[in-house]
């Protein structure tokens, strides 16, 4: 049905008004951006890497002139390594992104997605227990036996007569390292376990069951109310130092990634991150990280 003259004028008026309403903020954006003359770079991904980037952000912004926006604090389901990789893949010259990963990548995935990896640090994997569990130290063999289901009761490792509740977070299954340093494949883990989707859930589950055991990166802040404690492995605590000297076997690699064809400025920024870590010893003391510069030994 044709629109009459009056109706057409009415529609035009509405369209004009709508354009004014929505176009005004768009037109103003360059003005706002040009006001501080900074470009925005977005980083997304795993919490553990976010911890490093968040700490370095003021220095990086100051030196590079970028506005850096980070998404990854306490990353849970949907905002982790995969989100970081996806965000990096969507990077464009107009809006450059980088990813923050908590695990290593296979070469095939790197090549397929045309990525460049910038390793940052190694993060120890804590073996967690309930605070009431008297077992404070386990050997690597015992840990592997527990996670594989060969040991099912704490009394077998000197603890109370309680069935062991194995809590796992078997994410990034196609990537090397990480939990695979405990047992290399999913199938090797006991079927009588519960598998959680985030570090937050891991800490809660282990805190709920007195006879539980689990694992999480040291960069995860368990909080003061957490009812979990760390089990020493072979008598060693999960620290960067113990990783470095080979006493602690469970860890994962933290890194940032960009697209291979990312701008030199972004890549420079990533290099800058790698270098700047060294200058922040609090990252190592607080989160027990081992800088990438020490990776040559691993």
């Amino acid at each position: 049905m044709p629109v009459g003259g009056k109706q057409m004028r009415y529609v035009n008026t509405i369209v004009k008004n709508l354009l004014c309403i929505f176009a005004a903020p768009l037109l103003m954006m360059p003005v706002i951006s040009s006001a501080d003359n900074n470009e925005i770079i977005t980083g997304a991904g795993a919490h553990s890497s976010w911890v490093i980037l968040d700490k370095l952000k003021p220095i990086l912004e100051k030196e590079s002139g970028y506005d850096i926006t980070l998404f990854g604090k306490q990353s849970m389901l949907g905002v982790g390594c995969n989100a970081g990789i996806k965000s990096t893949a969507q990077s464009s010259p107009q809006q450059e992104n980088f990813g923050m990963l908590c695990c290593s990548l296979h070469d095939a995935e790197v090549n397929d997605k045309d990525l460049e990896i910038f390793p940052l640090a190694l993060e120890p994997l804590m073996i967690l227990r309930h605070e009431t569990n008297p077992v404070t130290n386990l050997s690597v063999t015992q840990i592997k036996a527990i996670f594989s289901g060969k040991i099912t009761n704490w009394k077998e490792v000197g603890g109370l007569d309680k069935s062991i509740v194995v809590v796992t977070r078997l994410h990034c299954k196609k990537r090397p390292g990480h939990w695979k340093r405990i047992l290399p494949t999913v199938d090797e883990f006991t079927r009588k376990r519960i598998n959680v989707q985030s570090a937050d859930e891991m800490v809660k589950r282990v805190g709920d069951f007195e006879s539980s055991i689990g694992h999480a990166g040291t960069a995860w802040l368990r909080g003061d109310n957490s009812r979990t404690k760390i089990i020493r492995v072979n008598g060693y605590l999960p620290t960067g130092e113990n990783i470095k000297n080979g006493h602690y076997p469970f860890f994962r690699q933290l890194s940032v990634i960009t697209k291979n064809d990312a701008s030199p400025q972004l890549k420079d920024l990533m290099h800058r991150v790698q270098k700047e870590i060294i200058n922040h010893s609090e990252l190592f003391s607080e989160h027990q990280l081992l800088p990438s510069t020490s990776l040559s030994t691993h």
Partner: peptide, 10 residues
Amino acid sequence: MYVVTEIGAE
């Protein structure tokens, strides 16, 4: 429930 019934936790 799984933890309690299958693993035998409290």
